[in-house]
Design a protein around this nucleic acid. Structure first.
Length: 583
RNA sequence: GCGGCGGUCGUCUAGCCUGGACUAGGACGCCGGCCUGCCAAGCCGGAGGUCCCGGGUUCAAAUCCCGGCCGCCGCACCA
């Protein structure tokens, strides 16, 4: 049954122009998918929903940017991808099985070889006679496989560039600029939607795992010392119930359960309220795409599974017919790992200055050397002494003072009497810190697929794509009842023009019997079909047909735009927008 | 990458085992005509196929054999 649904869904997607495997005429290449005419429209509407939920709904805090797909090698050295996105792989010459070379060596010899070159690992394997743990066959050379797509920037061979495997680095690298443009306010969310590439070893599962795909992601930068202030919209979802399971619970066989956001945070199930808040937003977002809340949950990744910089990661899983639960988004607490790395590798200051509400007056103690004493004592050498004193820390001065022993700088002895204590009141207006990051990240193609599959229905043996009305690729079809009647046709074209000018995505179609055309638009998920019939010519009313119930309401043409707006954007019932037509 | 199964008009498929009348058949869809006063009606006509690709066996290959590509499943992989 589930197998059949997957096949039916893929068949519809291909036949009606939603999506299909790329490069088909050349035999295809695994891990690449095209989006067709309706696929692109649907994707755009999904992306617009995401913008609403994550960006526009938080317009004072979250902004969207766009950064390049190709980055210089330095960026991905800093991010750790050049080093960590690579696996050393060794292949058994006899049975062909592949193993992680470092794991195999650690297993057999108990030594950690992380960071060693493939040649060194090969040597270790040879010298210790390590063989295939499954069949005992001889192992080949250790090879590395990096999942980054590599290229060169310009004509210079040494100038290596990588295709981004995630969007995050674009936000981190541009962080200072964006922060500046947003007038240095924190919390700050930087969002981006764009394509990424990962050279997967063996992609499969149709659109679930691709080598090139689209991510919608946000890096939400916060002050780690101010959890409450980091989430000014927390109250919106405080009482929202989300469905989660922690990794420990999962190991114990606990099923996902419903919990209020505030409880999950207060009980420490979720490490930070921002993480929990964006998970609740993610759940609402997926619900708006027609995924019922019982068809999804959040599952915490175990420490072994998650990236080393993450202190907690939840995956959002949605049920699909063929593969069961699949990940559509990831929610990570990334800490300050990325910004710190980029500070180190680039030398740039990526800290944030956060002013206190009231400046803090603090009394500070300074230990200073009496300059007149030095001048008197060392005379012509004094200049040299001052210079050397520049490298002496407050701590050293304090110890010399407190212990009453001379401070030795180079070949000079400075007696403790020359050190003076000065207490000074200082006004501290704020603090500098490296922000922490909470990251919700969606894979669009997966979201698109689950949306498509959940919309797929059979009604009386016909396919109906019951997409939520406001994400339907085409919003309204305008149909003259009879093809061969010029009066109906010209009136229908007038109505089409009116809807088009009112910014609806409308199509006009006169080909085939009316029933056939209804069926056609049911299949591509058009929520409303407007039919121009003979009554239209008499009293200027049209019928609006609801894709899901097949009920029709009669609406005056001059009220049609408003009626369709309510129907498509405000979930108005078909009966509420006009007089129902008797079947 | 290994093993299993598969790949035929846009889509779904028949044919393959048992090579030859296959000029590859059908259904649905699509296009045109007739018809049609509301749910894939009917009639007529039409377009549409590198039988996944390459090689081999044979007088003859969609069909048998080998290699490759792609898809699905299992294993491995999935920062």
């Amino acid at each position: 049954m589930s197998e059949d649904k997957y096949r039916a869904v893929m068949e519809l997607a291909k036949r009606r122009g939603f999506f299909w495997p790329s490069y088909e005429i050349y035999g295809g290449v695994a891990g690449f998918y095209d989006l067709g005419p309706y696929g692109v429209l649907l994707k755009n509407r999904i992306m617009d929903k995401w913008r609403k939920f994550f960006v526009r709904d938080h317009s004072n805090y979250v902004v969207e940017i766009e950064s390049p797909m190709i980055g210089p090698s330095k960026v991905y050295e800093a991010s750790g991808h050049v080093e960590n996105f690579t696996d050393p792989i060794v292949t058994c010459k006899k049975c062909g099985r592949k193993f992680r070379a470092d794991h195999l060596i650690k297993e057999v010899l108990g030594i950690d070889v992380e960071g060693l070159s493939p040649e060194e690992m090969t040597k270790i394997i040879r010298e210790n006679g390590i063989r295939c743990p499954v069949c005992g066959g001889e192992l080949g050379e250790v090879k590395t496989f990096n999942l980054l797509f590599r290229t060169q920037i310009g004509p210079y061979e040494g100038n290596i560039g990588y295709l981004r495997p995630e969007l995050a680095q674009g936000m981190f690298v541009a962080f200072k600029r964006v922060l500046d443009a947003m007038r240095n306010r924190i919390p700050l969310g930087i969002a981006q939607a764009g394509r990424v590439g990962r050279n997967e070893i063996s992609p499969r599962q149709a659109m679930m795992r691709l080598r090139e795909f689209t991510i919608m992601e946000m890096e939400y930068f916060i002050d780690p010392e101010d959890e409450e202030g980091s989430c000014p919209f927390y109250h919106r979802h405080e009482d929202t119930r989300i469905r989660i399971v922690t990794w420990k619970e999962k190991e114990e066989g606990v099923e996902p359960y419903w919990v209020k956001v505030s409880e999950a945070v207060d009980e420490g199930l979720i490490v930070h309220r921002c993480l929990a808040y964006w998970m609740a937003v993610a759940q609402s977002f997926m619900e708006s795409l027609g995924i019922p809340s019982v068809e999804m949950y959040f599952e915490e990744k175990s420490p072994q599974e998650r990236a080393h910089y993450s202190s907690q990661t939840f995956d959002q899983l949605v049920r699909v017919s063929r593969w069961g639960w699949v990940e559509v988004s990831g929610h990570s607490y990334r800490g300050d790992y990325d910004l710190s790395r980029h500070m180190k590798y680039s030398g740039a200051d990526l800290t944030v200055f956060k002013p206190y509400e009231k400046p803090v007056i603090e009394e500070r103690t300074y230990y200073i050397v009496d300059r007149s004493f030095i001048g008197r004592t060392f005379r012509s050498k004094a200049k040299e002494v001052f210079k050397m004193l520049e490298g002496v820390s407050q701590d050293e001065l304090r110890r010399a003072y407190e212990e009453g022993r001379p401070l030795i700088v180079g070949e000079y002895n400075i007696p403790p009497e020359a050190i003076k204590v000065v207490k000074r009141k200082e006004k501290i207006t704020g603090k500098k810190f490296v922000p922490h990051v909470v990251e919700p990240s969606f894979g669009i193609e997966r979201v698109l697929y689950v949306t498509f599959e959940h919309a797929y229905r059979l009604k009386e043996g016909r396919v109906v794509l019951s997409l939520p009305r406001d994400i339907a690729p085409v919003q309204v079809a305008v149909l003259p009842l009879i093809e061969k009647d010029d009066k109906l046709r010209s009136k229908a074209k007038e109505v089409y023009d009116m809807l088009r000018q009112a910014d609806f995505y409308a199509v006009y179609d006169e080909s085939g019997s009316i029933g056939r055309r209804y069926a056609r638009y049911d299949e591509i998920g058009v929520p409303a079909a407007v039919t121009i019939d003979y009554e239209t010519l008499e009293d200027d009313t049209v019928t609006v047909r609801d894709r899901d119930t097949w009920k029709q309401a009669r609406v005056p043409t001059d009220k049609l735009v408003e009626a369709l707006r309510r129907f498509i954007y405000y979930k108005a019932d078909i009966a509420s927008i006009g007089k129902l037509v008797e079947a």
